[in-house]
Structure formats: structure tokens, C-alpha cells
């Protein structure tokens, strides 16, 4: 085989390989870094984070606005401290409420931000004070059972 045809085939092969990589990068995958532009970090303390994980989405009104970057245990307050980065285009008021929510019944957990009515916006590095922990199914069920039991005690007295 002559050298030019060989070069041509190798060129076609390499181009196909690169095209496949581009397809995987652009069509199949989403680049996690690119949809969050010039991020700033905020943090929030929770009594219980449930199954929240690093890289979990941060959403406000259902729209992705950031990602959880770090989760650590705060030994002073005996709480979980969740650090997350938020897209620089979005500002949230200082009385924003942070909840840990679940997408779907058994879906992944994410951090939901409910903005309040305050004029001042949260600055980078701020800590969100108002938080609501993840719903733990066991607690919910035990509460339900407790209420049922209490109802049961009242019923015969009637």
C-alpha cells in the first residue's frame, strides 16, 4: 500500500475517533462545570442531611443553580455543614430558606433554595441560617404509628 493511501486511512481513523469523543462529550454527557458560571460558595447547617451527596444539585424553583461541593460534620454545633457553589448570575436574599428535598419518591436528594423577601443578597461565604433537614422515612413512619396509637387509646374512651 502506498504511503498516501495509508496516511489517508489513518487520517480517517483518527478523525472518526475524535468525532466519537466529541459526540460523547457534547451529545451524551453534560459538562458539570460549564453550566455553573463564575460560582460563589455558600454554606448551610442541617440537623440531618439524609442521603445528600457531594455533587448533588442545588435547585431553586426547580432550576439548577449550583452544586454541593463539600459536606462535613461540624463538631461545635453537632450539625452537618453543607458547602455548595452557586452560579454567579444568581443572587439570593439573606433570608433564603434551604431545604433538603427528594426528586420523585425514590429519586436523588438535592438542596432546594426558597428565596425570602429580604432586600440584601447573600454574599460569598455566607451561612444560610434557616434550614430544614431531610425527611427521614423511619421518623415519619414512627410518628405516624405514634399518632395512630394515640388515636387508638382515645377511641375506646368515647
Amino acid at each position: 500500500m502506498s504511503r498516501t493511501t495509508l496516511d489517508l486511512w489513518v487520517g480517517v481513523f483518527v478523525a472518526m475517533g475524535i468525532a466519537a469523543l466529541l459526540f460523547l462529550a457534547l451529545k451524551v454527557a453534560s459538562i458539570s462545570g460549564s453550566d455553573i458560571r463564575s460560582p460563589y460558595t455558600l454554606s448551610a447547617r442541617f440537623d440531618n442531611i439524609g442521603g445528600l451527596k457531594v455533587r448533588a444539585p442545588v435547585k431553586s424553583a426547580g432550576v439548577l443553580v449550583g452544586r454541593v461541593t463539600e459536606i462535613r460534620y461540624d463538631n461545635e454545633h453537632f450539625q452537618a455543614e453543607v458547602v455548595f457553589s452557586v452560579d454567579g448570575r444568581y443572587k439570593f436574599p439573606t433570608d433564603t430558606f434551604a431545604n433538603i428535598l427528594t426528586s420523585g419518591l425514590l429519586g436523588e436528594q438535592y438542596l432546594g433554595l426558597d428565596p425570602g423577601g429580604e432586600e440584601k443578597a447573600l454574599a460569598p461565604g455566607d451561612v444560610i441560617k434557616k434550614t430544614q433537614s431531610a425527611v427521614v422515612l423511619e421518623k415519619l413512619i414512627s410518628q405516624f404509628m405514634f399518632n395512630k396509637a394515640a388515636d387508638g387509646e382515645q377511641a375506646p374512651a368515647k
Binding site: 469523543l21 462529550a25 451529545k27 451524551v28 454527557a29 453534560s30 459538562i31 458539570s32 462545570g33 455533587r55
Partner: peptide, 19 residues
């Protein structure tokens, strides 16, 4: 099919690790 795939596959975590 495509949007669920895109939502779950991360470029760095999945594609680059595979490469």
C-alpha cells in the same frame, strides 16, 4: 432517551474516566 442520558452522564466523571 437523550435528555435522561445527558442528565445522568457527567463529562469529567464518566467520559474522561473512561478515556
Amino acid at each position: 432517551f437523550w435528555s435522561q442520558m445527558r442528565a445522568a452522564v457527567d463529562f469529567r466523571y464518566d467520559v474522561l474516566n473512561g478515556v
